[in-house]
Write a protein that binds this DNA or RNA. Structure first.
Lengths: 231, 231
DNA sequence: GTTCGCAATATCCTATAGGATCTTTGAGGG
DNA sequence: CCCTCAAAGATCCTATAGGATATTGCGAAC
């Protein structure tokens, strides 16, 4: 390796970006929140995290600052951070209303604009999660949630409007929905609905794509709403 | 004060949130970026900021982490932060396209839903910036930008969908547009367009409100586009 | 029993220091 | 001249320490 490097100055691309500790901490704490290991409302004690993670306070503080911007933690000056609550019903309704405004539009644009390569990416994403177990456990729930998020992000990306994609990403929609555990069992329906969106996009039919996406989101909302009736 | 406090235990509300140094730093650096004191692409040297602001690195790092989430700085691990570029033409177009999708919808909803109190707030906001100078200087430009941002945020708020308002806020639309300095001179037109939106919202006419907002955003886009022709 | 005040403890926030990594500079060789 | 390499310097990142603030617990008074 050292010998191969000699004489190639300037011809190697820059190494991939390094992962620094604060990034690791961010992902770790995010995972704890996402998996409800730390419950909504829980105070996040910086000194305790220091002890438990075996690192200093500084990267912890930095990652908490980022998580605050993500809406996953709430900072109270001088008193610390706490995990944000899961969505209230009002927030849930706002989110879906917003989705119903943005995502069918995006799907329609994806139908108008997608190249053959784009369609391959859609197909690949659909193939990334097909093994729906009869009795969903936590891992399959998590895998489905991952597919769901990637699918929607991809459609937003194929809409060709990066502002819209980022805006949607910044709602952290699927992260918040993930935290509203609903026991699974509906992956088959969601996959079917995703497939209908993909079919319309492939046909290049924006009206049908928008309608399929709207239908999917409305169904998703209806499936999730009972969560709030149990509280 | 100490005497007044005696015997009133539990009856005083919690004091307003305290401002900590990292919050101050965040606003300071944000202001430097917004005012283009530090130009787009500039590296932000943490040690230099430490010396110039006379504080330690820690609050600086925290505020930079937040500014990264805001899209105002870009972090390159181990190499530091740099100020994000001003909007490219493509980003500008995406942003306006997104606005054209979101803001007329929001204005229409505001027209449907606003209470008398809401309308007072709109009126107050319109009254907050009326003194349009013949020859706009930097301060008036900044004041107009402030009004512009507050106005649009208020309409989003009156739409009644907090997800939408936050999503729009997180684009930092007016902050990015502010950095595209265009020399002013168009405040009178923008105010006239804002007034048309307010008039329609007051009438409770959602179609007219949406149309007025659409017209305003399209005009705003047309006014700003020449910025890119000069680059 | 409740409430208040005070001291002790815990936690948050920032400053400082040191190690790791990157960037710049200068010398030497072709 | 250009290129390479090594050393020096600058900067980033994290650990540690100390001061400021909030929280908790206990005892005294009512």
């Amino acid at each position: 390796m050292t010998d191969a490097h000699v004489g190639l100055a300037g011809q190697l691309t820059r190494l991939p970006q390094r992962q620094v500790l604060s990034d690791d901490v961010y992902e770790t704490v995010k995972g704890l929140i996402m998996d409800s290991v730390v419950a909504p409302g829980t105070r996040l004690n910086i000194d305790a995290l220091t002890r438990e993670l075996g690192i200093s306070q500084t990267p912890i503080r930095e990652s908490l600052a980022r998580l605050e911007s993500d809406g996953l933690v709430i900072k109270e000056p001088l008193r610390g951070y706490r995990v944000s609550s899961t969505l209230t019903r009002a927030e849930f309704e706002d989110l879906f209303e917003y989705r119903l405004h943005i995502e069918p539009w995006a799907a329609g644009r994806a139908a108008e604009r997608s190249s053959a390569e784009d369609l391959v990416r859609l197909k690949d994403e659909m193939l990334s999660y097909t093994d729906v177990p009869e009795r969903p456990d936590y891992d399959s729930y998590k895998a489905m949630a991952g597919h769901d998020q990637r699918f929607h992000d991809l459609v937003l990306e194929l809409s060709g409007n990066e502002t819209a994609r980022q805006s949607f990403a910044r709602t952290h929609c699927h992260l918040h929905l993930f935290r509203l555990y609903y026991g699974g069992g509906i992956a088959t329906q969601a996959l079917r609905e995703h497939k209908a969106v993909v079919t319309a996009v492939r046909k290049g039919d924006p009206e049908q794509a928008a309608a399929a996406m709207r239908s999917h989101i409305e169904a998703s909302r209806a499936r999730l709403r009972p969560v709030f009736d149990q509280q």
